[in-house]
Amino acid sequence: MTPEELQAARDHVIPDVVAGGLSVLFCGINPSLMSGATGHHFARPGNRFWPVLHLSGFTPRQLKPWEQGELLTYGLGITNVVARATARADELTPDEFHEGGRVLTAKVEHLRPRFLAVVGITAYRTAFDRKAVIGPQDRTIGETRIWALPNPSGLNAHWTARTMADEYAKLRLAAESESQG
């Protein structure tokens, strides 16, 4: 993909991968330019979402971004706090995050997943104006429990794929135990 093609994807919106009653709805910060250009979530080559999803046991194999629709067969989905594609998340305004939090809340109330997993603790804090730590949050949206996870962006050097997968696996185990309980 050329730099011009990527820049042309600025502000594109890509469709959510969602259905009612999901086990986990993963929520990114916003689409990258690569995602905007391809129409696939977490499409940037350095993004670790797809490997981490597999390493954590959510999927039986590592999916490619263009296979995102298969997530629905596992009871999983993807949305974003802010829908528009940018080169970097720091291009988003606090107002966009707050509005995104309102839109996300309405989406969760409508779809009613068992868990909302926000991948990026800063996105969670800004969108919902709440303190947060990695892991389960004390807030719910209706009956949907909220979980904050590390941002899988390749820019997030504080976390390795393995340490992220360990955190994602905690959510998977909670979702599995809740579905059996």
Rank of each mutant, 00 (worst) to 15 (best):
T93W: 11
L71T: 02
F42G: 05
L72T: 10
F128E: 00
G77P: 01
H98E: 10
N156M: 08
A161I: 08
T59S: 02
A106N: 13
L53V: 05
N47D: 15
W147C: 00
W66L: 13
V52F: 06
D95V: 11
T73F: 12
G20D: 15
E99I: 08
P136L: 01
P51S: 09
A83P: 06
H158K: 12
D95W: 13
T86G: 09
Q180S: 08
T59N: 04
A169S: 07
E178V: 10
D129K: 08
Q7S: 14
Q137I: 08
H110D: 11
P15W: 14
R130H: 14
L72I: 13
T122L: 14
E5M: 11
A132F: 01
R139D: 14
L22F: 03
N151K: 08
Q68D: 12
T2A: 12
A89W: 03
V119A: 03
V24R: 06
G20Q: 15
R139N: 13
T140N: 09
V118E: 01
V119I: 10
E4T: 14
N80C: 10
T163I: 09
T126V: 12
M34R: 02
T144G: 01
F49I: 04
A169V: 08
A9Y: 00
S32V: 08
N47G: 01
L173T: 15
K131R: 15
L173Y: 15
E70H: 13
F58T: 05
L55R: 10
T144E: 01
H40Y: 14
S56C: 11
V133N: 11
V81L: 11
G101L: 03
Y124F: 12
A174H: 02
V108D: 00
A83G: 09
G135F: 01
R44G: 05
R145H: 07
R162A: 12
L155C: 09
L116H: 06
G75T: 05
A117T: 05
E143W: 10
T140L: 09
W66F: 13
N156V: 00
G57A: 09
G39L: 10
H158C: 05
G135R: 06
R112F: 04
G142Q: 07
A165S: 11
P51N: 09
S32F: 04
Q68L: 08
L63Q: 06
G154D: 07
A148H: 02
K131S: 14
P152N: 04
L149G: 05
A9W: 07
R44H: 15
H158G: 14
L104W: 00
H40R: 04
G36T: 06
A87T: 05
R139Y: 11
L92R: 07
